[in-house]
């Protein structure tokens, strides 16, 4: 881990990473503000939610505190934050530096190709953890705001954050692999977005298709992230899910290091 590079990455990415953390906190706050109204108007909102559940069976029950405050974990913007926060870092280094010609300047120092890749990965680990803590903070503040903090399974939410950080790291490592391989940031971003979108679509299909085989959901990394199951304390394979995501991240990292060493061009 290169300390100067860590400081450089922090200076460069604090704003985007900060935004990714703030998004789920903001969602939690909004849920905290509107929850009492939703509860009061349950006779109207209940049937609407039942109707929507026809298409999205995994929609949480917003009329229960444990369902409402799991929303910061499930909101599409939160998923986007998980995916983007570490990926932005990885796509900027090395692919971004290569594209704009500053990679030579970095690699002519003591920083080796391997060290560049492992340093970027090391930086992504706290980013993934902090981004995954965003929904927890949001849920905590939101539920405190409306006096429901006692009815919210904070322990289970914390497990959701652990799973979310593994998911975030998985996508960060994928971005790093693509970044090492690609010609520049443009190409790397294109490949990363295409792969992520494909997985996202697989996940949406597996959720909307009633009676879909289990393997379809498991074909996408999003299938290993189950905040609703954890929040409702259903029987979920938390350890296995976590393991799959972390092993995936480790494989991508190893592959990225191997590719970086073998690259003919820096």
């Amino acid at each position: 881990m290169s300390r100067p590079l860590f400081a450089f990455l922090l200076r460069r990415h604090w704003w985007t990473c900060g935004l990714c953390v703030m998004l789920p906190i903001l969602i939690g706050l909004i849920v905290g503000v509107i929850y009492p109204t939703m509860e009061k108007e349950r006779s109207v909102i209940g049937p609407m939610l039942d109707l929507m559940r026809n298409w999205f069976p995994e929609l949480p029950n917003f009329l229960r505190p444990d369902g409402a405050f799991v929303w910061p974990y499930m909101h599409p913007m939160t998923l986007l934050a998980y995916v983007l926060a570490p990926a932005i870092v990885a796509l900027a280094q090395p692919a971004g530096e290569r594209g704009r010609g500053s990679l030579d300047l970095l690699l002519a120092t003591r920083l080796s190709r391997t060290r560049l890749v492992t340093s970027v990965f090391s930086f992504m680990v706290p980013v993934a953890v902090v981004v995954a803590l965003g929904p927890f903070i949001g849920s905590f503040i939101g539920s405190t705001l409306c006096g429901e903090v006692g009815s919210v399974p904070l322990g289970a939410y914390l497990l959701c954050s652990v799973e979310a950080s593994a998911l975030s790291l998985f996508f960060g490592s994928l971005a790093l692999l693509v970044s090492v391989r690609a010609r520049d940031r443009g190409q790397a971003t294109l490949i990363f977005v295409a792969v992520t979108l494909a997985w996202f679509l697989v996940d949406v299909v597996s959720q909307m298709w009633k009676g879909a085989p289990d393997w379809i959901g498991r074909a996408s990394p999003f299938g290993y992230y189950d905040p609703l199951g954890l929040a409702y304390q259903q029987e979920v394979s938390f350890t296995l899910d976590l393991l799959v995501l972390l092993v995936g991240a480790a494989v991508f990292l190893g592959w990225a290091v191997w590719l970086a060493r073998r690259r003919r061009f820096a």
């Binding site: 590079l5 400081a7 200076r11 460069r12 300047l105 920083l111």
Partner: peptide
């Protein structure tokens, strides 16, 4: 390098400190 590209978000001093660190 012949086609020198620096880091636009750093100032001159930060650039030199960063490359010194590396």
């Amino acid at each position: 390098p012949g086609d020198l590209a620096l880091f636009p978000f750093l100032n001159g001093f930060q650039t030199l400190r960063f490359l010194e660190g590396l």
